[in-house]
């Protein structure tokens, strides 16, 4: 019994290890440093988004707009960096440094997330609908901002964020690791984190304990927006290009990572590290299937089944939840 429980508890790590071992046997290209860093770099964007998504889902919400917010914040940062803001009638031109453009991108992400949170708490719009609306709004805004064309040629300094190395580790991995570390501390060790779990676990009890539910939820969606912007900046930098259709359907990969990582869609249960494992499983699977020359069509089907298996395992672990 206790062996079974231990197995269930570490199911994602075990699944990850099994996948790695199988892939190592089946492909000599899998267990190489290059491939390792590749996988890490590829999942970094998803991990950043998914950290925010975890917070949202812990409160029993959902955020469908992260992919579009990612695109818009990346495009804003890229556009400001490249063109600045010009107001010819006033004879004003404001140029942006890399740091300035980054902060502007993050502010845009945070602002859109804030708007999501405001709709959800002030007007009681269900999270699914509010963020679905934001999904199209932010995508449309990206199209408007870019005119439908990529913004490219962003300079070496900016490219360093997505492609540079520091102390032998790729920059995106550094950024993601810092995001994850902060998120772990916030969820485990701060009032805010505790309240996030409490609201998802039983919103009514949390309200009757005097918690400011609206304020906490608004913050959660704002953070999800900021983290989507972080992902957007990494992606834009890595490609040296802000694509108008960047981040398309990223919300689904992100929800998949959260769910595979064992966070309950009914709120109140889950963890940041679980989500990181979920994203790793998706990343390793993607990379492995590519190395094994599995057709992209099959890849999608397999990924779908992995999500189902993960959730079924989760049901076995927690049979009493609705």
């Amino acid at each position: 019994m206790s062996i079974k429980n231990t197995l269930l508890k570490f199911q994602s790590i075990i699944a990850l290890l099994v996948m790695c071992i199988v892939l190592t046997i089946m492909s000599d290209k899998f267990l190489t440093p290059e491939n390792g860093w590749n996988i890490m770099r590829q999942i970094s964007v998803n991990v950043c988004i998914s950290v925010g998504m975890t917070l949202v889902i812990l409160t029993r919400g959902i955020d469908l707009s992260v992919g579009s917010i990612l695109a818009f914040s990346g495009a804003v940062a890229a556009g400001l960096l490249k063109y600045g803001v010009a107001m010819p009638s006033l004879n004003i031109y404001v140029g942006f440094t890399v740091l300035g453009a980054l902060l502007a991108g993050l502010a845009v992400g945070g602002g859109l997330g804030l708007f999501n949170g405001w709709m959800i708490t002030r007007f009681k719009v269900p999270p699914f609908v509010a963020t679905l609306a934001m999904l199209t709004i932010a995508r449309g805004a990206t199209m408007l901002w870019t005119g439908g064309f990529p913004i490219t040629g962003l300079g070496e300094d900016f490219a360093f964020i997505g492609t540079g190395w520091f102390l032998g580790i790729p920059m995106p991995v550094w950024i993601t690791a810092i995001v994850v570390a902060i998120a772990v501390v916030v969820t485990k060790k701060t009032k805010f984190g505790r309240y996030v779990y409490a609201i998802g676990g039983n919103e009514s009890a949390a309200r009757l304990s005097g918690l400011n539910i609206s304020k906490i939820k608004v913050w959660v969606y704002a953070l999800a927006g900021i983290l989507a912007a972080v992902g957007g900046i990494i992606l834009t930098s890595r490609l040296d290009s802000a694509q108008p259709n960047a981040g398309f359907s990223y919300e689904l990969d992100s929800i998949a990572a959260v769910v595979i990582g064992g966070t309950s869609l009914s709120g109140g249960r889950g963890s940041i590290m679980g989500t990181v494992q979920g994203a790793l499983i998706i990343g390793v699977l993607n990379s492995g299937l590519v190395l094994l020359n599995v057709s992209p069509f099959w890849q999608q089907i397999i990924k779908g089944f992995v999500i189902l298996v993960a959730v079924i395992m989760d049901r076995v672990n927690h049979p009493n939840e609705d």
Partner: peptide, 27 residues
């Protein structure tokens, strides 16, 4: 309305007065 059932007893007890379990900004 009273409890977060999936939370530990200690976390439920501190729910409405969590400030007294905070030290240097952390729980």
């Amino acid at each position: 309305d009273g409890l977060v059932l999936q939370m530990q007893v200690s976390k439920n007890i501190s729910m409405a007065s969590i400030d007294q379990t905070v030290k240097n900004g952390f729980l």
